[in-house]
Computed example of a mutant assay.
Amino acid sequence: MSYPSPSASDPSLATSAFMVPSVEATSDDEIASLPSESADTSDLDDFSDYSDAEEEWRESVEQLELLLTMVIVPFVGKYLGRKCAYWSWTRFMEWKYPVEVEVKNQAAYKGTGVVAALASL
């Protein structure tokens, strides 16, 4: 079966950058000259098992990539970003406003914390 040339129907298509090359019909001699092999069914089964395993492997790798890019990386980035922000803000505030806190009575300090916690209930 031969297809008509696109340039015959429309001359502007002949110069198009997206032209698909024309498909030439193969002759019977070319088909007859191809080697014919009888394939064993066991060879086909092995190939089928291999391709199924390879397809499953690719699917599992794709799922791991999705898990990594959609779940793990954002959570790790969020965690590390917050840690970095808290650390840098603490360092800045200690540099900008150097304040030392001295607790003279530990029992009163802890008691105040307990009373404040109970008052919030």
Rank of each mutant, 00 (worst) to 15 (best):
residue 69 T to Y: 04
residue 84 C to W: 11
residue 50 Y to P: 00
residue 71 V to H: 15
residue 16 S to I: 02
residue 37 E to H: 05
residue 55 E to M: 11
residue 98 P to H: 12
residue 14 A to K: 05
residue 24 E to R: 13
residue 108 A to P: 00
residue 34 L to Y: 04
residue 7 S to C: 08
residue 69 T to H: 03
residue 89 W to E: 07
residue 84 C to R: 08
residue 71 V to I: 05
residue 101 V to T: 14
residue 101 V to S: 05
residue 83 K to N: 14
residue 82 R to F: 07
residue 66 L to M: 07
residue 104 K to R: 15
residue 85 A to H: 10
residue 44 L to V: 15
residue 2 S to V: 05
residue 47 F to N: 09
residue 19 M to E: 01
residue 28 D to W: 06
residue 44 L to F: 15
residue 100 E to L: 12
residue 15 T to R: 12
residue 7 S to R: 02
residue 121 L to C: 04
residue 79 Y to W: 08
residue 78 K to E: 08
residue 54 E to M: 14
residue 2 S to T: 12
residue 26 T to G: 05
residue 41 T to L: 12
residue 86 Y to K: 12
residue 94 E to K: 10
residue 84 C to E: 07
residue 44 L to K: 12
residue 63 Q to W: 12
residue 37 E to D: 05
residue 104 K to L: 06
residue 56 E to H: 10
residue 65 E to I: 03
residue 106 Q to E: 13
residue 91 R to V: 14
residue 74 P to G: 01
residue 106 Q to Y: 15
residue 61 V to E: 11
residue 22 S to W: 03
residue 57 W to N: 01
residue 104 K to W: 06
residue 8 A to L: 11
residue 32 A to V: 12
residue 114 V to Y: 10
residue 10 D to H: 02
residue 84 C to V: 01
residue 27 S to E: 12
residue 76 V to Q: 06
residue 49 D to M: 10
residue 50 Y to T: 09
residue 77 G to Q: 11
residue 108 A to W: 03
residue 71 V to F: 09
residue 91 R to C: 04
residue 33 S to P: 02
residue 26 T to E: 12
residue 11 P to L: 01
residue 4 P to D: 06
residue 79 Y to G: 01
residue 84 C to Q: 09
residue 109 Y to E: 06
residue 112 T to I: 07
residue 23 V to A: 01
residue 109 Y to L: 00
residue 66 L to S: 08
residue 58 R to I: 05
residue 40 D to Q: 00
residue 21 P to L: 07
residue 104 K to Q: 10
residue 22 S to D: 13
residue 17 A to H: 02
residue 80 L to Q: 11
residue 19 M to T: 00
residue 9 S to D: 05
residue 113 G to P: 02
residue 32 A to D: 15
residue 20 V to T: 14
residue 6 P to G: 00
residue 72 I to E: 08
residue 91 R to I: 13
residue 41 T to A: 03
residue 72 I to P: 01
residue 79 Y to P: 00
residue 59 E to S: 11
residue 47 F to I: 13
residue 73 V to H: 02
residue 104 K to F: 09
residue 39 A to H: 07
residue 46 D to L: 01
residue 78 K to H: 02
residue 112 T to H: 06
residue 61 V to R: 09
residue 99 V to M: 13
residue 39 A to F: 04
residue 38 S to C: 14
residue 66 L to A: 15
residue 17 A to M: 09
residue 36 S to L: 14
residue 20 V to L: 13
residue 67 L to V: 05
residue 7 S to Y: 08
residue 114 V to I: 14
residue 42 S to I: 13
residue 58 R to D: 04
residue 17 A to I: 12
residue 17 A to Q: 11
residue 55 E to Y: 04
